[in-house]
Amino acid sequence: MIRDITLGQYYAGESLIHRLDPRVKIIATLLFIVELFIVNNFIGFAVCAAALAVYVKVSKVPLSFILRGLKPILLIIIFTFCLNIFMIDGRIIWQLGFLKITVEGLLTAVFMGIRLVLLIIGSSLLTLTTKPISLTDGIERLLGPLARIGVPTHEIAMMMSIALRFIPTLLEETDKIMKAQQARGADFESGNLLARAKSLIPILVPLFVSAFRIAQDLAMAMEARCYRGGKGRTRMHEMRFRGNDYAALMILVLFLGVTIFMRMQLPSVL
């Protein structure tokens, strides 16, 4: 059962978006987040939402799949919504004891709520349409210039991709250890929170031991295969911008212009 876990919620597909260079998608996501903070009125959000809708449509990721990813964060959205609606002072429109709703509070709550939802959907599309491994590749190459000032970009990317590779292995290991402990009478399900947390210790200790053993083996295997850091290393997959990528970049720049223009021309909500 533990083998089926999908990581980073990648939605396999062959759409235009899936085939874009990961660097373009990372830039697009970052820009979209910035744009959501540039926008300061509801018309701006409507435009952003429309753009996002087109992006989703082109990516062919089903909406239900995207919304499912929102579920775990729903609580945070509701929490910030309530915080905003009750905590901001201003013209009171409804009051019950110490709880009061103001016009400003309501506006801010709705505004922030929309921003948060768009932000989460926008950034989840990155992991939905890009394989984790291409993502780390893309990050390595985007950070490339920083390597010149001493940032270990190659090492960071290598660590991320090794982590991705070994998550399933460590899950399997955990499963094995748990079964071994259960066979000897360990009980992970009953008791209060503290008792249950304590019962995890016999799992964590051997798990750490085997993680170190795996790391040692892997380091040796990597050395045997002539790994010596990022210097002088080539890559099988060359990343090259193609027509689509340039077109996407143009659209991104245009859209950034549109949001800045809207901010300058339209009145702010808050």
Partner: peptide, 30 residues
């Protein structure tokens, strides 16, 4: 060198990328 435990000597989460790991380290043309 090929080691005993197949799990602990594969580096990449995609088969072909793993096979490419050695040649990439040698700096061979893509």
């Amino acid at each position: 060198m090929v080691f005993q435990n197949p799990d602990n000597q594969l580096v990449s989460s995609i088969v072909e990328d793993d096979v490419a790991f050695g040649p990439e380290n040698l700096g061979i043309e893509p």
